[in-house]
Amino acid sequence: MTDLEDLYREIILDHYRSPRNRGELESPPAHRVEGFNPLCGDEVVVTMLVEDGRVADIKFAGSGCSISQSSASLMSSAVKGKPLDEVRELIFTFKSMMSIHQASLGSNSTDGEDADDSYNGNGDGNGLADVRKLGELAALQGVVKFPVRIKCATLGWNALAQGLDELDAGR
């Protein structure tokens, strides 16, 4: 697989062409967060409805490159309906995958145990950056080879994390 095919995997292109959960939930009651990438002008608006400790509904809007928009689409599918602790873990795992350190370990390395060990420490024990747990999201792994695009991939995730923090703080 060339680097380019690795970056633009079919599932990414699919979410780019046919984004899931696109739009905005009415706010309030939904919580609304905007994320900007001043470098390229990409923007994403995440609206989330948190009920009974779950992300009951989530939508994203905005404009940007295939990576920022498909990542937000994949994110919305992955967290919709999930309990908050699972969502937070997913955010952490995804952002770990997007770190340069993880990239240097090699995505298909056979010494995955070592990779897992280096990310142990939040009590999960299964390895925080275990991309197998990410399902479809693992398709975004190729982004780490293109450091300037990491900000595109994390744009929606940072907005989601900020939203959850704000809800936690009672805003």
């Binding site: 060339t2 390229c40 490159c65």
Partner: peptide, 13 residues
């Protein structure tokens, strides 16, 4: 309607 970032990325290849 291809985003300029995607265009530039492909062009780099």
């Amino acid at each position: 309607d291809i985003h300029p970032h995607d265009l530039a990325q492909v062009l780099d290849q």
